[in-house]
């Protein structure tokens, strides 16, 4: 199969998946959204009825009041499209989401004071990239390097301790390590701030501001890298070992190729899954980590999600839900694409 056709099929699949996923998310939240919309409408009508001019016009006639309420309700239902079937709203919201029309939040504000969700998301994006994408890149480099070393010397003490370490980090909550580090390094030793991204007030000078950012970044970055690189190293080690045991590598060794040439062959064969992992993690890192960000009070996407949940700001919750899901779908697409480019065998299977 040609590369173009492979890409076209993958792209079509991804688009279908995007549509299905956004319809599902829209459907999951539709009942709550409707409930909230109805409550808002009732509240608005009640507020309107407090208007003294309106009250005078009724003259205490209860049927007239009831009629007014019914009429206003019908109007507002029409305005919010509540008169249409539920399925219509589900699909409408899903397609709005696909076009990044997230609308307005209930209460959370973007930095410019508006309730525009797109602006809100964009404002929380850079902190998450600064922390988690940086952490993912460091982790990937460290993990690939250590994993290769472990695979070269498999069975050695280094290899075994790496395996144990990766199991440790697999079972430990990152956010708990964060709490411990805050306790030790911030509270006891006073070396790092207790949380946040900038000092209050932030320094004016750009250089000082940058140093201030690094100072706040150090502890959360260290925490995330420390807990994640073990798993990376272990997976890379396993992929490489699986490649080393293949027959063609044995042949390469048997015919006397120098070790560096052999490693080239190994890496070329082990690259696709590792590259896939890198892509998935880097795109995944854009979503941040809800709990870790909460512990460090880091104003990123994760904390925003948590704020939206606790303040019952449904549009923001849903928008971030779409965002996280889209991120995964797109990451999968790029990962499969890279896999197909690096490993032509995959293309044939389709």
């Amino acid at each position: 199969m040609g590369l173009a056709r492979f890409i076209a099929i993958k792209l079509a699949n991804t688009l279908i998946l995007l549509v299905i996923v956004s319809v599902i998310i829209s459907g999951l939240f539709a009942p709550v959204m409707d409930q909230y919309a109805r409550a808002t409408i009732e509240e608005q009508i009640r507020a309107e009825l407090q208007n003294p001019d309106l009250q005078r016009s009724f003259g205490g006639n209860s049927t007239a009041i009831q009629e007014y309420i019914n009429q206003r309700r019908a109007q507002l239902y029409k305005q919010y499209e509540l008169d249409k079937p539920l399925i219509y709203r589900i699909f409408k919201r899903a397609f709005d989401a696909l076009l990044f029309k997230f609308g307005k939040s209930y209460s959370l504000q973007a930095p410019d004071g508006t309730r525009d969700i797109n602006k809100l998301l964009l404002s929380r994006f850079p902190p998450t990239i600064i922390l988690f994408t940086t952490a993912t890149i460091i982790t990937a480099i460290l993990g690939i390097f250590l994993g290769l070393q472990a695979a070269k010397k498999h069975g050695s003490l280094f290899d075994k301790s790496l395996a144990v370490y990766s199991l440790f980090s697999y079972s430990i909550p990152t956010w708990w390590i964060g709490m411990i580090f805050i306790l030790i390094f911030s509270f006891q030793l006073g070396l790092f701030p207790l949380g946040g991204m900038h000092s209050i007030p932030p320094p004016k000078d750009p250089l000082e501001s940058f140093i201030d950012l690094l100072w706040h970044l150090a502890l959360p970055l260290f925490t995330v890298v420390l807990v994640s690189f073990g798993g990376w190293a272990y997976v890379v080690r396993n992929i490489v070992i699986e490649t080393i045991t293949q027959d063609y590598i044995m042949v390469a060794r048997a015919k006397g190729l120098p070790e560096s040439r052999v490693m080239y062959h190994v890496l070329r064969a082990a690259a696709p899954p590792i590259v896939t992992m890198v892509i998935l993690s880097i795109l995944g890192s854009l979503g941040g980590a809800i709990i870790t960000e909460t512990v460090f009070n880091w104003p990123g996407m994760g904390v925003l999600y948590w704020q939206a949940i606790t303040q019952n700001d449904l549009p923001v919750v849903i928008a971030e839900g779409y965002f996280f899901a889209f991120l995964y779908v797109i990451a999968m697409f790029f990962a499969e694409l890279m896999y197909g480019l690096l490993d032509p065998r995959v293309r044939v299977q389709w």
């Binding site: 998946l17 996923v21 948590w306 839900g321 899901a325 995964y328």
Partner: peptide
């Protein structure tokens, strides 16, 4: 395969959080 894919790409923790909160 599609259903599997859909569950695979669902952002688990955010969805669980939203469900648990509701």
């Amino acid at each position: 395969k599609r259903i599997n894919d859909i569950f695979y790409v669902m952002p688990v923790l955010p969805i669980l959080i939203a469900m648990a909160a509701a």
